[in-house]
Design a protein around this nucleic acid. Structure first.
Lengths: 303, 303
DNA sequence: CGTTGTCGATAACACAAAGTCATGTTTTCT
DNA sequence: AGAAAACATGACTTTGTGTTATCGACAACG
């Protein structure tokens, strides 16, 4: 195959009409240019330049070659620019799989920051529970998975992924304001053993059952929905008590619901998962903004 | 600048989904491909592939790069084909500067042969006297100069050119059939010292004067024209005698003109001149056909 | 009309790049 | 689990790509 580098040299020789001048222009020595032209001629099997007076003149084949090389080099420049744009955060697309609460509480702020920093980068979002998000990551269908996990569950040890911790999301107790315990600052979980419970997604429900077991009882769960506004309404109407992530409560506060302290419920750990190894710049940038937004949330929690 | 070679490798990796497969397809070893991809990534500053299961998957930057490379490589193929066509005599243009008689007597046959052998090669012709033809060659305005020279003139010793002898063109005496000497087989030049002469181009006239001087007289030249048909008419009408190149006489034979032998007139040497050094294939091919045609003319003369 | 400066070609050589083989690590399939 | 397959890594060889030094040829100058 023709070597573009040699083509560039020939082009310069054509432009300047002399090998010596081309060598100067390209910061080479004259013999280097002479050699390259000779090799190019050997490769294509026909003379490309002809000595003429002081310098050289191109043959027909040489002229045609230069025309084509011009075209090819222009497209090469385009190519480089496109890739440089991705490397320089002026372009790029990131696919993220995010669990619902984070999609509402974390992502909008992170994307706003990312847009301010790198307007050319676009992010596409897929809402997905952690399990599906990880599966998508494994299949290469997404670039970043935003997931959460509870202390009582085994951590994800898959070495193919790198876990970037984002923040801790404390699980809060929510009870009706009409409830006898509503006036206490801190509530013991065991005191709610006889209540009717509402719970969210499978994983959250699982965690609730685990926490109650630690407290010595099995909760009676009558309502299950992933809609945290709906859950709060159930609580507000006095139909149930529930445990909700702080993030969900931060998104919406229903009247007639109180949130006493209940340390036994612990917290869930929110993290971003990306494939191990080097990351595209746009992915790194998104992770940066996610950690920044998450850190400010963490600060609010610790106050 | 991006290396097309690496681009080709990346493209193959993208097509086959694995470095090992790409290596097989390109007759490389696996580490070679691995190395090239790693270097490409270092050069562009962003990951291009990501490990996925058995093989690799391309990142966004990788996919975009491959798209562009496809385009560039296609144009590279075009380029190679264009040049290969010139090298393979399927295309090409030759500019020739030819003196008038040869343009009529030599070139048409040579071009017919060349067309049969290499239909894609085109030849452009400029009629020019030897001096102008050589000047054009020196200026790079023509690729081949077809010239002639006489024995009494100094040979062209310019080392910048290579001379390819084509044939000898004997100078013939032409006299009216009504002339007293018309019945003789061989005529002595000195017997025509008192005649009125016609002559052709400057160089031919010069040669005539020289030959007559050798025979001991100065010819009285009343008619000078480059049109050999016109000259023959002058002779046919008994207005003059003349010396004409055999080639011109071969092109047109006027009635009432006889051509006795006159060895003293010698001959002119027809040759092709090309720049020294390697020659484009189309030029070589034209020279081949010219020498072939000229050789057959030489044979006719020697019979 | 020779002399001098410039250009291209060539030879010898230094260094970098591009391959290879051997081997390790990770992931998948049995 | 263990075997097979794929990418990564390291040491080494070969090839290519540059350099300096020098020659031969053309052109412009006095």
């Amino acid at each position: 195959m023709l070597d573009l580098h040699r083509g560039r040299i020939l082009r310069e020789v054509a432009r300047l009409g002399s090998m010596t001048a081309a060598a100067r222009s390209l910061a080479y020595t004259q013999p280097a240019v002479s050699h390259h032209i000779a090799r190019l001629e050997a490769e294509v099997g026909t003379p490309l330049v002809i000595r003429h007076g002081r310098g050289v003149l191109l043959t027909e084949a040489g002229r045609i070659l230069v025309e084509h090389i011009d075209d090819v080099l222009a497209r090469m420049d385009d190519t480089e620019e496109r890739i440089a744009a991705i490397a320089g955060l002026r372009a790029g697309r990131v696919r993220a799989a995010v669990f619902p609460t984070a999609a509402a509480a974390l992502i909008p702020d992170a994307l706003a920051r990312l847009r301010a920093r790198a307007p050319g980068v676009t992010v596409t979002l897929d809402e997905a529970e952690p399990n599906t998000a990880v599966a998508a990551l494994r299949e290469g269908e997404t670039d970043v998975a935003i997931v959460f996990n509870y202390d009582h569950l085994p951590p994800d040890t898959d070495t193919r992924f790198r876990e970037i911790p984002l923040c801790d999301d404390p699980i809060r107790l929510a009870i009706p304001s009409s409830h006898p315990l509503a006036e206490k600052d801190e509530v013991n979980l065991a005191d709610l053993a006889e209540e009717t419970w509402a719970s969210g997604c499978f994983r959250c429900r699982d965690h609730l059952v685990w926490a109650c077991a630690e407290a010595g009882f099995v909760p009676s769960i009558a309502f299950a929905t992933e809609d945290h506004v709906a859950i709060q309404r159930f609580v507000a109407r006095g139909l149930a008590v529930t445990a909700l992530p702080g993030l969900a409560l931060g998104l919406h506060s229903e009247p007639d619901v109180v949130v006493p302290r209940a340390p036994a419920l612990g917290s869930r750990h929110i993290a971003a998962l990306v494939p191990a190894g080097p990351r595209p710049p746009a992915v790194t940038a998104l992770l940066d903004e996610l950690t920044a937004v998450a850190a400010s949330l963490d600060d609010m929690n610790s106050e």
